[in-house]
Simulated scan of single mutants.
Amino acid sequence: MNKRKVKHLIYMGIVCLLLLVLSSIYAVLYNHGRLVEPMDFSTYTFHIKDTPMVLSGILLIIYIIYMTIFIIKYNMRKPVDTTHTKKLSPYLGFLGFFGFFGFAGFWTYNSAGIIYPFIFFIFFGFFGFYYDGKLSNTLRDELFEQNVKTASIKAYKTGFALLFIVIWGIGMGMLSKNLEWCAIFMLISISLIYALVLFLDKYYLYRLEKED
């Protein structure tokens, strides 16, 4: 994947996010915070002033779908080179910023009782693509393969340790008085732990390769 295409993909994402931010500001200032502040969607009726928020939201969804299809097609077309690592741009690490959409879960939960947006916290793990890019076209010799295994083990150990702490806390009765908050806590924790494991797997490998 050449840098030019990656930059275009990132610029498109920045534009989508900027339009969403501007639409949110408009909604707060001129539309009584509709579609920004918590509201009951069961009684929602479309107003013409909702157009900026609706269009920016649709545009963001289209971008995410396009980005997913683009990455899948790229991986399918690219010939497999087993002797070297894939050629990736460090700019792909910017995809990790989509993890901030996980915070939207607090809004959707308050307004409609929906908690699945918390899963977006997993995208924080995409920051690890930065280190993948730094190791592009690296020779996959025996030492590299050993470093891959070592990095994965270290990342998994950290993830399992954090997961044990979370499960232990829940088992000790934390948030037991509110099952909804317990479910939210578990979803957020698992998503963040998974993201951390993804990130550390790439980071530890980069550190091992540079130290060697």
Rank of each mutant, 00 (worst) to 15 (best):
residue 138 T to R: 14
residue 85 T to M: 03
residue 133 G to I: 09
residue 93 G to Q: 06
residue 114 I to V: 13
residue 106 F to C: 01
residue 109 Y to L: 01
residue 58 I to L: 13
residue 65 I to H: 00
residue 109 Y to C: 00
residue 173 G to D: 01
residue 93 G to R: 06
residue 171 G to T: 02
residue 79 P to V: 03
residue 60 L to E: 01
residue 85 T to C: 03
residue 179 L to R: 10
residue 52 P to R: 02
residue 67 M to D: 08
residue 66 Y to T: 04
residue 75 N to K: 12
residue 135 L to G: 05
residue 51 T to Y: 13
residue 96 G to W: 02
residue 56 S to V: 10
residue 174 M to A: 14
residue 123 F to R: 01
residue 82 T to P: 12
residue 100 F to G: 00
residue 104 A to V: 13
residue 93 G to D: 11
residue 125 G to T: 14
residue 50 D to L: 06
residue 162 L to T: 00
residue 107 W to Q: 13
residue 168 W to S: 15
residue 116 Y to D: 06
residue 99 G to W: 02
residue 152 S to R: 14
residue 133 G to R: 13
residue 101 F to D: 07
residue 84 H to F: 08
residue 51 T to M: 14
residue 87 K to N: 15
residue 178 N to D: 15
residue 61 I to L: 13
residue 139 L to H: 09
residue 178 N to S: 12
residue 119 I to Y: 09
residue 160 F to S: 03
residue 53 M to S: 03
residue 172 M to A: 11
residue 111 S to F: 09
residue 115 I to E: 15
residue 51 T to A: 15
residue 59 L to M: 09
residue 179 L to G: 01
residue 140 R to T: 09
residue 155 A to R: 04
residue 106 F to Y: 13
residue 138 T to N: 05
residue 162 L to C: 00
residue 59 L to K: 01
residue 126 F to A: 14
residue 58 I to P: 00
residue 104 A to H: 10
residue 132 D to C: 11
residue 176 S to G: 02
residue 57 G to C: 00
residue 165 I to T: 04
residue 65 I to F: 07
residue 56 S to P: 02
residue 158 T to R: 09
residue 180 E to C: 01
residue 84 H to N: 06
residue 151 A to K: 06
residue 164 F to V: 01
residue 78 K to W: 06
residue 109 Y to G: 00
residue 118 F to T: 11
residue 77 R to N: 15
residue 180 E to F: 13
residue 180 E to G: 11
residue 157 K to T: 09
residue 148 V to P: 02
residue 179 L to M: 08
residue 100 F to T: 05
residue 171 G to H: 04
residue 53 M to P: 02
residue 98 F to T: 03
residue 51 T to K: 08
residue 119 I to F: 12
residue 51 T to C: 11
residue 179 L to F: 10
residue 125 G to P: 06
residue 171 G to P: 00
residue 114 I to Y: 06
residue 155 A to V: 08
residue 48 I to C: 00
residue 50 D to V: 10
residue 173 G to W: 05
residue 145 E to A: 09
residue 105 G to K: 13
residue 167 I to E: 00
residue 79 P to T: 04
residue 47 H to M: 07
residue 51 T to N: 11
residue 150 T to S: 08
residue 177 K to Y: 12
residue 82 T to H: 14
residue 106 F to L: 12
residue 91 Y to C: 04
residue 65 I to W: 10
residue 91 Y to E: 02
residue 79 P to R: 05
residue 176 S to R: 02
residue 67 M to C: 04
residue 139 L to V: 13
residue 47 H to Y: 11
residue 181 W to L: 13
residue 112 A to M: 12
residue 144 F to D: 07
residue 161 A to H: 08
residue 142 E to D: 14
residue 105 G to M: 06
residue 117 P to D: 02
residue 65 I to G: 03
residue 134 K to L: 07
residue 109 Y to H: 12
residue 124 F to P: 01
residue 62 I to V: 03
residue 91 Y to D: 02
residue 99 G to C: 01
residue 142 E to W: 03
residue 72 I to H: 10
residue 87 K to E: 08
residue 171 G to L: 04
residue 49 K to W: 07
residue 57 G to W: 09
residue 114 I to G: 04
residue 75 N to W: 12
residue 58 I to A: 03
residue 81 D to P: 06
residue 117 P to S: 04
residue 107 W to H: 13
